[in-house]
């Protein structure tokens, strides 16, 4: 089921980067029934071998030292940087426009979702509101009752930013900023092999804990959204746990179509990981 078509992707969970590589070999590659698939050949297994030169690891300072970082996550990140420092080359990088990622994402994603969810209209797919007596009511009442509050919120946001009079101010502008973010990542990638950053600002919050503050929930995506917007591959690697035993992840972002390099950097990070 499509949500934001320019952002949706298969996101496998696995026990290791080498398992992720196996999944990539199976799921990736050209598919004549998928207009978004690429004819670029998949990387071969040999390309996963540990590189014979030090990796150039970009340290995304504005994320690694972000205000919203929990102490536990901050410590984990600093630990990883120290471990990488012996053996790899660390390069400070900045993505000045990354701070716009969340607003850009929530404009683009909700706009696309509002369109993708239009097909759930009460005419098909089972639920039609029993009290609807005309076509407009079939739409309004079925969708009002059939969608949950978060979905309705996103559809309304998306419809608003696409509406006449607001399209240029919101959606078009968001697309332009998206390109700027993607360009900044591409520029940074000319100098480094991978970019290191935390995956989330905090460890997992409890179910229902932020349900009354959707914006606070959306802010948890702050570190993972840039890669999504730029369309570059990224991987989150479990690094350590906090005092309560909750997992802390670190992410690596790579260049377009350089999944093999990204995963081999991931394998390196896994080797450096503190043993539990």
């Amino acid at each position: 089921m499509a949500f934001g078509s320019s952002l949706d992707q298969i996101s496998p969970f696995a026990h290791s980067c080498s398992d992720l590589y196996e999944i990539l070999r199976i799921a990736g590659g050209f598919d004549e029934r998928d207009a978004t698939s690429s004819i670029i050949p998949l990387p071969d297994p040999a390309s996963l071998d540990y590189p014979d030169r030090p990796l150039r690891v970009g340290l995304l300072r504005n994320f690694l030292e972000h205000d919203a970082l929990d102490d536990a996550v901050s410590l984990a990140a600093q630990g990883a940087i120290r471990l990488c420092a012996s053996g790899q080359i660390l390069v400070d990088i900045e993505l000045p426009s990354a701070k716009y990622s969340i607003p850009v994402y929530y404009i683009v994603a909700t706009a696309e979702a509002s369109s993708n969810l239009a097909r759930f209209d009460g005419v098909r797919y089972g639920f039609r509101h029993p009290e609807a007596t005309d076509l407009a009511a079939v739409y309004d009442m079925s969708r009002g009752a059939g969608f949950g509050p978060e979905v309705r919120r996103r559809i309304m946001m998306g419809t608003y930013v696409l509406s006449s009079g607001y399209y240029d101010a919101y959606y078009n502008t968001a697309l332009k900023v998206r390109h700027v973010i993607a360009d900044e990542i591409a520029m940074a990638m000319k100098d480094v092999d991978v970019i290191l950053a935390p995956t989330t600002p905090s460890t997992a919050f409890k179910i229902g804990e932020k349900v009354d503050d959707p914006v606070a929930m959306y802010l948890s995506d702050v570190f993972t959204v840039p890669a999504n917007l730029a369309g570059v591959p990224a991987v989150s690697i479990p690094w350590s746990t906090d005092a309560a035993g909750l997992p802390i992840g670190l992410q690596l972002m790579g260049r377009h179509y350089a999944e093999a390099q990204l995963l081999s950097a991931g394998i390196l990070l896994e080797k450096l990981r503190p043993q539990a």
Partner: peptide, 14 residues
């Protein structure tokens, strides 16, 4: 591009 509108004979809604 997508032309979004609601009508029963337009299955995707666009």
């Amino acid at each position: 591009d997508r032309k979004n509108y609601f009508y029963p004979d337009l299955p995707k809604g666009y």
